[in-house]
Nucleic acid binder design. Structure first.
Lengths: 183, 183
DNA sequence: ACCAAATGAGACGTCGATGTCTCATCACGG
DNA sequence: CCGTGATGAGACATCGACGTCTCATTTGGT
């Protein structure tokens, strides 16, 4: 009976985040279904990865919407963004390292849109004098992705407590490691 | 005649950083040798990856030595470290995402040593009152890896100028994105 | 010039993953 | 109670990558 395709994608994301070379059979077992059923829902491994990519884009855009990036101080908007995107961080980390997605020049336009929205947030912060201007928005965007991936990986390895995920990323991204005397 | 194995490893690292699923044949072509010769130097794909891992560890430790992590302010030591490690960043980025290396519990002890040396640097900075103490040394270490990988990736994609690599990483890691009025 | 070693090209066989197929079983609705 | 549809289990062929091998050619040293 109509199996929940979303559940399959979640399981696949969780597994592939840990083992990006997992077999279709392993993906199926992880989702608690048979390989045949997995193939009935997703034409092949490529289709599965594409579906994961679409899911990742959806969740990213949902997080971007929920974070209301154009409201209030940019720093607080970054904080909201990381908090909203945290549940999808594992999936993002997988997609981030799946450079196969970008081999063809046909880079999914969804990512371009997301990149642009995040970069716009950093630009806004710079224009407001809130963020420093010697770090380009493109780099800050890239660094955010990298820290999200590192954070997801560190949590799954037990090196960082899950509850500290957002704090660690936001504080490092915005405040850096140096100690300061003020707020 | 004695082909330069180091050159092969460099080529392989450069290729695998961009396309982690590259074939042995592609690796050989990238190095300008035949697949047969590649097999004569490295027993198999696994051996090749292991050799890359050893090379990465060597370069990391060389960078750690050259950066003299226990001299002067910790912040400056971090700066030296990133500068020294920059040439190896691409290789590091590849190894960082090659989670296959850590599937077996048999995590290469070299990484443990490197992790510990970097974490010790952050601990030293914290003890000296130079770094904030709400970000754990383990997380700062992980974040450094993530930023190095993001930086290498951003440079190879043309989103960041190569000459800005060290500055972008060090400034973000130490100072964060927020603008400050001091030093 | 000669010899030894290394290389390149290519031909295999092997193996694992994939994709497709069939058939038995099970769940749910009429 | 029966029938339709989805699922699970497994067989099967295909395909790509791998690893090994041979043989001709080239390179470098003597």
């Amino acid at each position: 009976m109509a199996l929940d395709p979303d559940h399959v994608l979640r399981s696949a994301a969780a597994l592939l985040t840990r083992k990006s070379t997992a077999t279709m059979d392993e993906v199926a077992k992880a989702a608690g279904i048979s390989r045949a059923t997995l193939h009935r829902h997703f034409a092949g491994r490529d289709a599965l990865v594409r579906a994961l990519e679409s899911l990742g884009i959806e969740e990213c855009e949902a997080a971007l919407d929920a974070a209301r990036l154009d409201e209030g101080p940019a720093g607080e908007a970054v904080h909201r963004l990381v908090r909203e995107i945290e549940p999808a961080a594992g999936l993002l980390a997988f997609l981030y390292t799946e450079n196969q997605l970008f081999e063809g020049e046909e880079q999914n336009q969804g990512w371009t849109r997301i990149d642009e929205r995040i970069a716009a947030l950093f630009r806004r912060g710079q224009a407001a004098g809130e963020f420093r201007i010697d770090l380009t928005p493109a780099w800050l965007t890239e660094a955010l992705y990298g820290l999200l991936a590192s954070g997801a990986w560190a949590v799954s390895e037990g090196r960082v407590a899950p509850k500290d995920f957002t704090h660690m990323i936001v504080e490092l991204l915005l405040g850096g490691a140096l100690r300061r005397q003020e707020p």
